[in-house]
Nucleic acid binder design. Structure first.
Lengths: 135, 135
DNA sequence: CTGATTTTGACAATCGTTCTCATCTGGCCG
DNA sequence: CGGCCAGATGAGAACGATTGTCAAAATCAG
């Protein structure tokens, strides 16, 4: 049975306060900053649990970190992620689901799962970045 | 300028002998097994170079490893990967490219990049696995 | 061949994550 | 209410993949 502890609640709350994906380390740092004596290992465990329960989404950043995000829609969906600020838009695409299933089936693969995420630079960051670029 | 060394060639060859994705560590082990005194750091560097040059594809496995694979088609494409044996099928999907670009544009995101990979269990492995399952 | 420059490789360092284990605690039962 | 016990916690060690360091070796242009 899964127990109700203030640590889990703290992790869940901290996660839902963020707009985009956060790393476990960041979340731990943030929690510590608020005075929580929560342990790093606990944050990892809580996040893993949330991900399993479908309350959070996880993906791996390019540099070997696991990122987590509180999920609004419970079902299967994908993300459009700003590579600069981490802001995230949830997207649904039945067409993709079908395509993936179809491709898998056509090649004799069973139990298709897919990783579909789109990265980009959101308007806000694109504007900020172009101001700095040495064009 | 990039110099031509037997180590790079060895890595490239070892990579193209494999049918699916391999981790840097595996490749290093395999090379060592053939008697090469090649160093681990060198394998990592060679793989990173290959990936940059477009001669190899890289992706991250679920458990924090970078996997590499010699690429047949040079252009942009995706993969259908057997989660059990690592066998890989290259797939192209213009529809996906368009969809990704469209989604990005509709949400005001610039420079869309996407991660689209399908994992499954290939026929061979599915057969092998079902034989073991405690149904 | 020679010299400049890149590459190599052994090993240490780093970084994210997981494990260990003693301790604590939530939730259920009497 | 009090006790019990499996599950949860946390400090720190352990771990595994990757990257950095730096002297020695190898490559290539002239």
């Amino acid at each position: 049975m899964r127990r109700q502890t203030w640590q889990r609640a703290a992790v869940r709350d901290a996660l839902s306060e963020r707009e985009g994906f956060v790393s476990a380390q960041d979340l731990h740092t943030a929690l510590k900053a608020t005075g929580s004596p929560i342990g790093l290992a606990t944050v990892y465990r809580a996040l893993a649990d949330l991900a399993v329960d479908g309350d959070a989404d996880s993906l791996q950043s390019g540099d070997g970190e696991n990122l987590y995000r509180a999920c609004v829609s419970q079902g299967h969906h994908h993300h459009l992620i700003c590579r600069s600020c981490g802001r995230t838009v949830e997207i649904e695409a039945d067409a993709i689901e079908e395509w993936a299933a179809d491709v898998a089936a056509r090649n004799g693969f069973r139990d298709p799962q897919h990783v579909v995420d789109v990265f980009g630079t959101c308007e806000r960051c694109a504007a900020a970045a172009s101001a700095c670029e040495v064009v």
